[in-house]
Design a protein around this nucleic acid. Structure first.
Length: 196
DNA sequence: TGTAGGATCCACT
DNA sequence: GTGGATCCTACAG
């Protein structure tokens, strides 16, 4: 067990944190079952100056309140009325930056993830999307504002360091409404095959 | 109080 | 490649 510490999440540079999370293990202990896998895809949401962020312009509402917590809490919200999306809040308290976990490679508790997703789904298909990974991991709105130091959701460093060359960068998905900010290279993908 | 639209996924063409 | 599902959130009035 080698949980990422609070100091990691409290870093000021959300883009750097998004990149650093690639190759770490995301784990949940929900319904008394541990499930999780290798983080393969993340996106950074850079606070009040980022039009794609829920907290753009300093928006502070019931929903976005969680983003203003100090780094190391979860931010779960409902997207398109159907999908729960899981983020990691970063930075000091009052700074609403967060990293969206968009994909993991299933490694632990695969059988149970398959039950949650339905038996037709298997392998990477279980968790290769932000809505799919929460479904397979059992994450719901109940798990909003959970501390990543807890035994419910946490992130571990298990692998050796990731090589820069194995990280692909690109614009974020589904944020066309954000104008110029939609083009920012805040999406990170890991060529994960060699790290399995 | 009303309504437009969304950090997605899946089935269908 | 396209569109429907589905319902909460945000904001205007």
């Amino acid at each position: 067990m080698n949980k990422l510490k609070v100091s990691f999440f409290e870093g000021e540079d959300v883009v750097e944190i998004a990149k650093s999370l690639l190759g770490c293990f995301l784990l949940t202990n929900i319904d008394n079952v541990i499930t999780g896998g290798l983080i393969t895809e993340t996106e950074a949401y850079n606070g009040i100056t980022d039009k794609a962020s829920h907290a753009y312009g300093g928006r502070l509402t019931q929903r976005t309140r969680t983003m203003y917590l100090s780094g190391g809490f979860s931010y779960v919200y409902l997207c398109y009325g159907i999908h729960n999306l899981l983020n990691v809040v970063t930075g000091p308290a009052g700074v609403p930056t967060a990293v969206l976990i968009r994909g993991i490679y299933p490694m632990i508790g695969i059988q149970h993830m398959q039950m949650r997703a339905g038996k037709e789904v298997s392998g990477y298909e279980l968790t290769n999307g932000p809505g799919k990974l929460t479904r397979s991991l059992g994450v719901t709105l109940q798990h909003n504002a959970v501390n990543y130091q807890s035994d419910i959701i946490w992130i571990e460093k298990r692998k050796q360091d990731i090589f820069e060359d194995d990280i692909k960068t690109g614009p974020r998905i589904g944020v066309a409404y954000a104008g110029k900010d939609a083009l920012l290279p805040y999406r990170f993908l890991l060529e994960h095959e060699k790290y399995l």
